[in-house]
Amino acid sequence: MTEELHEIRLRVNGIVHTVSVPARRLLSDCLRHDLGLTGTHVGCEHGVCGACTVLVDGRPMRSCLMFAVSAAQHEDITTVEGLAGPGGEPHPVQRAFAECHALQCGFCTPGFLTLIAGYLEDNPDPSEEEAREAVSGNLCRCTGYQNIVSAVQRAAELRTAEVVGGPARAAEEAPAPQPHSEGGHQ
């Protein structure tokens, strides 16, 4: 009872791959084990944790809740390995995470990075509250989220500065303001 294999073409981070997979191969496993892109992590395989989040045609989605054969219907998949710019310069959100100490063990990080990269495309200037809401669908067990929320705003700043004045200008920007602390959150 050998399983039927499907030959699929997946465009990941701009590169077209052809792989043979059984229909039940999850996209997360296909990326990690068939394509060797192990930056996409797996933390629950039931859609809650978000460690497996990738951008599918620019939209963040759970790669553990998609079969590779279905994913092949899409134009383009971006994983954490593909966030950097063409010259290898880190994406603003990658820089912001390091600057703001928004990661500890780093296991959840790729999922947050892809999520936020996708989010900032539509919401270039989120308030603290919006930033918190934006990352509220992914789990992190280490950081308590505070620095992740700061990193969203910092990434937005860096991104805007890059768009306006190029990367050099962005680096000169002041560090992310510490949002004031009274009154809790929503």
């Binding site: 039927e4 229909a23 039940r24 219907q73």
Partner: peptide, 11 residues
């Protein structure tokens, strides 16, 4: 936590 095998159609 991996799904069982199935026959796949994408009409």
């Amino acid at each position: 936590m991996k799904p069982s095998a199935f026959t796949y159609h994408a009409p």
